[in-house]
Write a protein that binds this DNA or RNA. Sequence first.
DNA 1: ATTAGCACTCTTGTTTGGTGAGTGCTAAAT
DNA 2: ATTTAGCACTCACCAAACAAGAGTGCTAAT
Lengths: 342, 342
Amino acid sequence: MLTERQLRILQVIVDDFIETAQPIGSRAISTKQEVSYSAATIRNDMAELEQLGLIEKTHTSSGRVPSEKGYRFYVDHLLTPFHLSRQDTSAIKQTFSANMREMEEVVQQSAALLSELTNYTSIILGPEMLETKLKHIQILTLSDFTAVLLLVTDTGHVEHKSFRIPDGMHHSEMERVVNILNDRLAGVPLMMVPGRLRTEVQELLKQHTENFDTIFAYLRSFIDSDQPLKLYFGGKANILMQPDFQDINKIRSLYTMIEEEGESLAHLLRGEQNGLHVAIGTENKLDAMQDCSFVTASYSADGVHMGTVALLGPTRMEYSRVLSLMHVLSNKLTSAYQDWQK
Amino acid sequence: MLTERQLRILQVIVDDFIETAQPIGSRAISTKQEVSYSAATIRNDMAELEQLGLIEKTHTSSGRVPSEKGYRFYVDHLLTPFHLSRQDTSAIKQTFSANMREMEEVVQQSAALLSELTNYTSIILGPEMLETKLKHIQILTLSDFTAVLLLVTDTGHVEHKSFRIPDGMHHSEMERVVNILNDRLAGVPLMMVPGRLRTEVQELLKQHTENFDTIFAYLRSFIDSDQPLKLYFGGKANILMQPDFQDINKIRSLYTMIEEEGESLAHLLRGEQNGLHVAIGTENKLDAMQDCSFVTASYSADGVHMGTVALLGPTRMEYSRVLSLMHVLSNKLTSAYQDWQK
DNA sequence: ATTAGCACTCTTGTTTGGTGAGTGCTAAAT
DNA sequence: ATTTAGCACTCACCAAACAAGAGTGCTAAT
């Protein structure tokens, strides 16, 4: 069991290292206000903290550095309630006050804001659309040969795809198709659309259209095409600026992950659905993140999980500030979403 | 004036350096087939080439490396016609054969392809929309309070924006607005839309609607909102993998440019409207690119410039291969675009 | 229980010397 | 008049050697 003094020493070590990125020695600690003991005393405690695996030396002699386990302990037990600076809160307020008409925009801005306030890289998994319903389907002919199919959801999201009008397809026939689709699919939750298409709608189309095969193939390819990843990044370059990452290969692998592992990231984010969560160093599953901390906060609407905000930084992260920010931000997102729906 | 032998020596130096990224010395050159002279002879010629500023030493002794001027000379006079490997051509063919229905998709794929084939970073400025015409305007109400405004162009491009229905605005009034807009703006080239809006349409709306002020403000904010940058990247991480960039700060500045200087890049690309162009090292205007080569190739439709393909790599770039690839690709884009329009 | 003192360790920076690749020049060969 | 062989010279690179400084661990005194 750690003594009060040891706790304070650990706290000082972590705080100082987070601030300076430099190992800190017993002498330096003893000059701090928080622990007014001699360097020797502190050394003894540090030896014990090291024994417990909470701090480490970078080499035989020279200050201590928090270990991964140390950060974990810090996050779990030593986090001082941080209150955001006026600038921070006003920046957040301002971002959310700008009357943004689209959820996508809100999310985008949030990502930008979060990365700007923290100097880390933010990643937001956009609102899941499983609950949203199809509102309207429409086909517009652009020329004699091409047309564009529009899908609008009740959240104002629009998907579109242009296509070449099948030979021999008459305008009136397209209209019939659209009518059938609207009739049968409007109001249906997105996740159920493919199913409906393959049952009811298929039947109806077969009965009422001539070029059933081509039409149906078109529709399937459009509706089944997987949703684009709703992953928004902010400050991609920030993570490279951290002094923690000096090793060029580390930078490369991190960067490659950000650019090319969208799928893995999305999967990771979808896994974190409850509140705030911090993964430190090797607690992360992705290889490139072994020296990073990854903080996630989910946001929801009416208790249903909608998406996840995440922040990627070095393990030497300003946890207390970051956690406060993300707490606020995910709440703001939740309420923004609720406002939006009403 | 350079002798035949000096030309060949320069060629060998550049070719070899492009391949190995290592300085090459007289002895190594003399063993090559292309120049069967003794090392001493070659040394004399190299001295002269250096005098002319075409090659440099990295330090007093140790092989030569092409200078920027050397690359320039190489590109201008020494480029051997490169014929693409079967793999390359078939990869290109395959990319363009997939029947893609949207120009945006084609461009996106092209960027991916180009970066994959070269291991550099590709940047494509998407087809300019100045010539495209507004096809259709529509408002869909989503709920009692929200609606979404859709704009469709004759190229199948869709812009949308949801908004809160102004208080006291009746459904019939919105319909009237949409009718006016369609009546007056359909078929108008995009670049002229803002102008039309402020003249004819403004008048008409004033006469026929009650909430003129709010409506007009809405419309302006939507239509004036600057077009999103049509800038597509491929292989953003590739450039970091080049052995040429070992310096962490160089990597950082390059990366920051890619992530945050979209505007400058777009501006740069818009400036290059004729054929193939190569900017080497300090010929580039952007600071971060001082050690890079930037190859641009514009594509067009009916002689009108549509967009620009670009490739960003180290000055030690496989010019001959890259130029061939980009030549082919820009042609493919041109013809894809023409196909699309017909 | 705390602290002062001291020997010890290990990094960091600097110097020193050796090696090898590659050059520049001169004199000989073609 | 070219081309080539030969040789002294330069400089990056590497490793070893060394001093300085920061910080530790332990012991003995407070």
